[in-house]
């Protein structure tokens, strides 16, 4: 339990730094902006209390916002994603439910489950984020293109990261 808290604290700091220092500088052709830090919310254990989920989302969002001087933008998007997470988990739950201490990951569930879980939440987050950034619906399809392309890149990065954890955990 303590180890888990420590792990997630480290993951929190790592993701914030990665996002702020590296990924925020990536802007492929003006469309694509990966927001990899959402991985933190995705990986939280199933047993995480709902209120804790929201508080963590708020903290993570604020941290990203402070560094990228977009106060409230990432926070609101990430809060929505955290709010949706329990419902999505309930919708796609396997027949025998979740083990309380487990985290969502590729090796514990099949690829299809994980793909749905990640895609839906990442898309929701990016959708809210980009539309808050634009703050209008007049260029709807331009913004939507940005949402889709960036979501694809973020999802790709998340899968790649899962391969790393898969390997490290398989060694153990």
């Amino acid at each position: 339990m303590i180890k888990q808290i420590l792990n997630f604290t480290l993951l929190f700091v790592f993701l914030v730094l990665l996002q702020v220092l590296v990924l925020n500088n990536i802007q492929l052709s003006g469309y694509i902006n990966p927001y990899f830090y959402v991985l933190f919310i995705l990986l939280l254990p199933f047993e995480t209390a709902n209120w804790l989920l929201l508080i963590l989302a708020f903290a993570l969002g604020i941290s990203i916002d402070v560094f990228s001087s977009t106060m409230g933008m990432h926070t609101s998007a990430l809060l929505l994603m955290a709010f949706l997470r329990p419902s999505i988990l309930k919708l796609i739950s396997p027949r025998d439910g979740y083990d309380s201490n487990q985290s969502p990951s590729i090796q514990d569930f099949d690829f299809r489950w994980f793909a749905i879980y990640v895609s839906v939440l990442v898309f929701a987050h990016h959708f809210v984020l980009f539309f808050i950034e634009a703050f209008r619906f007049s260029d709807f399809f331009y913004t939507l293109t940005k949402v889709i392309l960036s979501s694809l890149l973020t999802i790709l990065l998340i899968f790649i990261s899962q391969l790393f954890t898969y390997n490290s955990q398989a060694k153990r």
């Binding site: 409230g72 609101s76 809060l79 929505l80």
Partner: peptide, 10 residues
Amino acid sequence: LEVIAIFLLI
């Protein structure tokens, strides 16, 4: 929390 976030945003 969302209201706080949007308040901060604006």
